[in-house]
């Protein structure tokens, strides 16, 4: 199988809750619960969902920043979870991550030069005498000036600091970059600059992105395919167009309808959900969305729906985890608000 760059199979990430006098494991937070997907080379797959759905945990588990509880992560045919720590470190040359908060993810006591140099040093990507040129090239690539190389992070604005984060990730020539809410902290005008930069770099450097975000506008702009998570599970996956224009899972529909549209003349039908996201400590049985779903039946409470396609209503590669795709589509089932 060479068509996939990254493959994630049945990934689970449980965080133990310790309690009692002996600090025994009393329960788990099931942050990611049996998630599978694949990323093709050169594409952008986005993972979206609200807080606590497990999207960031998935990204961290792939890089083994947290050790996953179980499952398989294969990158270019290599099983990442069976690698030793030092082998994994070498692997991270190909797998980089850009975090949300550029204030927290860059060492404030290092200059940009030190930040970039350290990344190249650890991964041993270039002989020492060539690094200077590479750094200048990187600065230009991300739209910063060569004269800024010896500045400290606090001398940069939020958007510029995110560019430093991008330069650091690029410094080791990665194949896959996980962008974890990389533009969420930025103002709109700056966000657009960084998004355009990420898109341009992808084309030029043949990068693959796993883009983790909660802003669906951003996701529509940057992705080829989109995966929607709810409470640790994948509820829908598909190419961008199908997912945004023809969502099938009731949760995806609600999520899309809840986003305010910057056009006051567009009066759309808004589906407003009852209640909050349930706790991932004791997630609801069956379909995890059943407590808030306007279509839920007894079957939804009892049986976990599989990700499946419905050839009549969905194009190839578009899947949703709902028992009633056909019934909802035909109008046979009515929502119960």
């Amino acid at each position: 199988m060479t068509t996939e760059l990254l493959k994630v199979n049945n990934l689970k990430q449980y965080f133990p809750i310790k309690g009692g006098i002996f600090g025994r494991r009393v329960n788990d937070v099931k942050a990611v619960d049996d998630v599978s997907f694949a990323v093709k080379p050169g594409e952008t797959l986005s993972i979206v969902g609200e807080s606590g759905c497990g999207k960031s945990t998935t990204g961290r588990a792939i890089l083994r920043l947290d050790e996953p509880t179980s499952g398989e992560v294969t990158f270019q045919g290599k099983d990442l979870l069976s690698l030793s720590k030092s082998e994994m470190r070498k692997m991270r040359k190909d797998l980089q991550i850009i975090f949300q908060d550029p204030y927290a993810s860059i060492n404030p006591r290092q200059t940009v030069r030190q930040v970039l140099n350290e990344a190249m040093e650890i991964q041993n990507v270039l002989p020492k005498n060539k690094r200077e040129d590479r750094m200048l090239e990187l600065m230009e690539t991300v739209g910063l000036g060569a004269h800024q190389l010896d500045r400290f992070p606090h001398e940069f604005s939020g958007g510029q600091r995110q560019r430093i984060g991008i330069a650091r990730a690029l410094s080791v020539d990665p194949k896959l970059i996980i962008c974890d809410e990389s533009v969420s902290a930025l103002d709109v005008s700056i966000q657009a600059q960084v998004l355009n930069l990420l898109k341009k770099l992808q084309k030029e450097l043949d990068l693959t992105y796993l883009f983790i975000a909660h802003d669906l506008g951003v996701v529509r702009h940057i992705s080829d395919r989109v995966l929607v998570m709810y409470l640790g599970k994948v509820v829908e996956i598909g190419d961008k167009k199908s997912l945004f224009d023809n969502p099938k899972h009731p949760y995806t529909k609600t999520l899309l309808s809840a986003i305010p549209v910057p056009d006051p003349t567009k009066k759309k039908e808004q589906i407003i959900l009852k209640g909050d996201v349930p706790s991932p400590i004791n997630p609801p049985s069956g379909c995890r969305f059943h407590t808030r779903c306007p279509f839920a039946t007894d079957k939804c409470i009892e049986e976990v729906p599989d990700l499946r396609t419905s050839p009549e209503h969905m194009v190839d590669g578009h899947q949703a985890a709902c028992h009633y795709i056909e019934e909802i589509e035909s109008g046979e089932m009515k929502p119960n608000y």
Binding site: S189, Q193, L195, D215, R220, V261
Partner: peptide, 24 residues
């Protein structure tokens, strides 16, 4: 105008976002 043009929308397709150069 720049602000509205640089906003990624979930309800329509946009090729490239216009940006507002520089910063506040």
């Amino acid at each position: 105008v720049g602000l509205l043009k640089s906003l990624p929308r979930h309800d329509i397709d946009q090729d490239e976002l216009e940006v507002i150069k520089g910063m506040v």
